[in-house]
Amino acid sequence: MEVYTNENDQVDAIKRFFANNGVALVVGLVIGVGGVFGWNYWQSHKTNVLQESAQKYEAVSTQLHSGTVQGIEAAQKFAAETDDVYSAMMGLELAQISVDKGDLANAQKALTYALAKAKTVDMQDLISFRLARVQLALGNLDQAMTSIENIKGKSWQAAAQDVRGDVLLQKGDKAGAKAAYTQGLESDGSQSLRGILTLKLNNVSNS
């Protein structure tokens, strides 16, 4: 089911980023904690925890994509019990599987949990965008609008305005939808997205 456009490139990029830099990011957050002994202990502990989480994520992700009930249950357990970026990424994977099955309610649930575990603005924006698309498909228009308003990154604004326009159009607000599509075109979006926004803007203007 094509509920939201393919952002798998962004997801893969985030995975690669945290695979390469995740430990350094976590370590960097506590610079200035103070005390050489305390710092070294904390650094070693957090590094080990994140590495263990990364390894478990890879194993559970492989199990999840085997398509078994056990794999889904293992992924849900990992997402619930892990409190780092890998929990958020597992939530994204669970949501994608639910969307592929047409189970939008479970997709919304998985994305809501993932958003609570997301540690970076870019990942929060990605999850909020996908959540908004799912909520729109479910007809939860007010929730979808809230999710769109939570998107902060400049690079996401064209896509966010695209969905915002769709929500407003469903609400019967053609003027608002037209303004959203126009704002999306004025943002930094891909050529394909600009084409979609242009088509939607023309349809609203001529209706």
Score class of each variant (00 low, 15 high):
1 M>F: 06
4 Y>T: 03
5 T>P: 12
5 T>Q: 11
7 E>Q: 10
7 E>K: 09
7 E>S: 09
8 N>G: 00
9 D>I: 02
10 Q>T: 13
10 Q>W: 13
12 D>S: 03
13 A>L: 06
15 K>Q: 06
15 K>N: 01
16 R>V: 04
16 R>C: 00
18 F>S: 02
20 N>A: 14
21 N>H: 15
23 V>R: 15
25 L>T: 07
27 V>W: 14
30 V>G: 10
30 V>S: 14
32 G>E: 07
32 G>D: 01
33 V>R: 15
34 G>P: 03
37 F>K: 10
38 G>S: 09
39 W>Y: 11
48 N>L: 13
49 V>K: 05
50 L>D: 02
51 Q>S: 07
53 S>C: 09
57 Y>C: 04
61 S>C: 03
61 S>D: 01
62 T>F: 05
64 L>K: 02
64 L>F: 01
65 H>P: 07
66 S>Q: 15
69 V>P: 12
71 G>Y: 02
71 G>L: 02
71 G>C: 04
71 G>N: 04
72 I>H: 08
73 E>W: 09
74 A>H: 03
75 A>V: 02
76 Q>C: 01
77 K>V: 09
79 A>N: 03
80 A>E: 02
80 A>S: 00
83 D>A: 10
84 D>N: 15
87 S>L: 00
90 M>D: 00
93 E>G: 00
94 L>I: 00
100 D>M: 03
101 K>A: 04
105 A>P: 00
107 A>V: 05
113 Y>Q: 11
113 Y>N: 06
118 A>Q: 06
118 A>I: 05
119 K>S: 13
119 K>L: 11
121 V>N: 06
122 D>H: 07
122 D>I: 01
124 Q>S: 08
125 D>C: 04
125 D>K: 02
129 F>L: 12
129 F>I: 07
132 A>P: 07
134 V>K: 00
135 Q>T: 01
138 L>K: 06
140 N>E: 11
141 L>R: 00
142 D>T: 13
144 A>N: 02
144 A>I: 06
145 M>G: 11
147 S>K: 09
147 S>L: 12
149 E>K: 13
151 I>Y: 03
151 I>T: 05
153 G>I: 04
155 S>I: 14
156 W>C: 00
158 A>K: 09
159 A>F: 05
160 A>Y: 03
160 A>D: 02
163 V>R: 04
168 L>M: 13
169 L>G: 08
170 Q>E: 14
171 K>N: 01
173 D>M: 13
174 K>L: 13
175 A>D: 15
178 K>E: 15
179 A>D: 14
179 A>T: 14
180 A>M: 08
180 A>S: 15
183 Q>W: 04
185 L>P: 09
190 S>E: 12
190 S>N: 10
191 Q>A: 15
194 R>W: 11
195 G>N: 10
196 I>H: 11
196 I>Y: 10
199 L>T: 15
201 L>G: 04
202 N>H: 11
205 S>W: 08
205 S>E: 14
